[in-house]
Nucleic acid binder design. Structure first.
Length: 435
DNA sequence: TCTGGGGTCCTAGGACCC
DNA sequence: TCTGGGGTCCTAGGACCC
């Protein structure tokens, strides 16, 4: 643990929902919920206006609708989120080359690794970053924690959220941490919290009572040892700029359980194509193929098989995953299927037998010269109308789609309803739906 | 109409090898 | 003749994170 507060943790506030409010002026100041919008969906992010009504991440969308029926429920536009994230990470890298993104909306930055870092200018540096993020992203806000370790920086960023800063003065770490719930420590989730509760440990201070060996007996080697240290704010983990991808996977929960084997095999084929194209985009190939299945009753299994050589070939991935489905009892229906690849190598095996017809036709990538016609209009997605211009889908059903014509750069705009196959209406730039 | 999707890390047992 | 060990790979499951 270093002696200066120079590790920063930055967290964009209600990230997905904030991007939506930025791009949809009529939703600013209103409850916005981004996530799965189908019957089995869950909330990814709720705006602060929605959180007032008790809506939280990972809550079922059905419950969120009950709690906050007047909210806008949107499917999510990942291209827009990725672009905003890219701008933020780029700005962070100007402060220091040691930036460790944790997700699209979170990163650690080792400020001490930056060009002529001056600890006496810490607040000015942080405020400049936050100011620039707002400018670059069209008004997104970030919460920041700065401390002498990753642990305390991460905890600090929560303290004055949203749009706030908290600096943990070196020397005060253990005192700041002590009164907090044990679950404040990253890595203490529901299962660990329950184990700790059973032996009377509720706060971080409580967590300092047992010996290291006792914690190892309770939580296992790895967790036990790390919890012993983290409880004392003893943390010297470095900020690591780049981490290698370890696995690539796709999964889908169906609106209705599926028990038709042929249909499941087709879904596996589609997923294998998607995994394959993502492997290729990143110059990766892998040896272990994993099929994930979730039964109607939520019982979940994985089945994996390791190939002799790494591959990124969609046909091989599909055949391997399909073989793993044989022997599984699907008579009561599956609610989820997933296909993944691990054991990645950053090189592709020269395949002596590869030929063009070895590949399944890749329809994953839309032909950019064509007009993109979405199969379905989901709430929140970007659209373009030949006459009315740019807007977003407010809702659809019964053969109609309702669009609000406004963008990030306009005032709240008018609403019009069209037939779902109106030829004047096209998909705008859009990401993957969260559904 | 209970319970997403994309990841990471850890544990544990069996096979196999030295 | 009564029981070694360590290491690695593979599979499966579980906890956790955003």
């Amino acid at each position: 643990m270093r002696s200066t507060a120079s590790i920063m943790h930055l967290d964009l506030d209600a990230f997905f929902a904030s991007v939506e409010q930025r791009d949809k002026p009529s939703l600013r100041g209103k409850p916005v919920i981004v996530g799965g919008i189908g019957p089995r969906g869950v909330v990814a992010t709720a705006s602060y206006e929605a959180r007032v009504h008790g809506v939280r991440s990972a809550m079922r969308t059905a419950e969120a609708r009950a709690r906050c029926p007047h909210a806008a429920f949107l499917g999510g536009r990942f291209d827009a989120y990725r672009e905003a994230s890219r701008l933020v990470m780029e700005r962070l890298r100007e402060a220091s080359e040691l930036v460790e993104p944790l997700s699209l909306d979170e990163a650690f930055v080792d400020l001490a690794a930056g060009p002529d870092f001056d600890p006496t200018q810490l607040i000015q540096i942080v405020e400049a970053i936050r100011h620039d993020i707002g400018e670059l992203t069209g008004g997104l806000t970030a919460s920041v924690g700065v401390a002498s370790s990753k642990l305390m920086a991460k905890i600090a960023s929560e303290i004055n959220k949203p749009d706030g800063v908290f600096v943990v003065e070196p020397g005060t770490e253990a005192d700041v941490l002590g009164p907090m719930q044990a679950t404040a420590i990253p890595g203490v989730g529901p299962a660990t919290a329950e184990r700790l509760r059973r032996v009377g440990i509720l706060t971080v201070e409580d967590l300092r009572t047992p010996s290291e060996d006792e914690l190892v007996r309770l939580l296992g080697q790895s967790s036990g040892r790390s919890m012993f240290r983290l409880a004392r704010a003893d943390d010297d983990r470095p900020v690591v700029a780049s981490r290698e991808t370890k696995s690539v996977s796709v999964e889908d929960t169906f609106e209705h359980d599926i028990s038709d084997r042929a249909q499941l095999e087709l879904i596996i084929e589609r997923m294998a194509r998607s995994v394959s194209s993502r492997l290729r985009k990143n110059g990766l190939s892998g040896r272990t193929v994993t099929l994930k299945i979730r039964h109607h009753d939520f019982e979940t299994h994985t089945r994996s098989s390791t190939l002799a050589n790494p591959t990124d070939n969609a046909r091989i991935l599909a055949a391997t995953a399909q073989a793993l489905l044989v022997g599984e009892d699907i008579s009561n229906g599956l609610r989820l299927l997933g296909v993944g690849v691990s054991g990645l190598a950053d090189w592709v095996q020269d395949d002596l037998f590869a030929s063009d017809d070895d590949e399944i036709e890749d329809d994953d990538e839309p032909d950019t010269t064509e007009v993109v016609r979405p199969v379905r209009w989901y709430p929140g997605m970007d659209v373009h109308h030949q006459e009315h211009g740019d807007g977003w889908v407010w809702g659809s059903g019964l053969g109609r789609v309702t669009v609000r014509f406004e963008t990030r750069y306009t005032t709240p705009g008018p609403v019009h309803t069209f037939s779902v196959d109106d030829p004047a209406l096209d998909a705008g730039h859009t990401g993957t739906v969260v559904a």
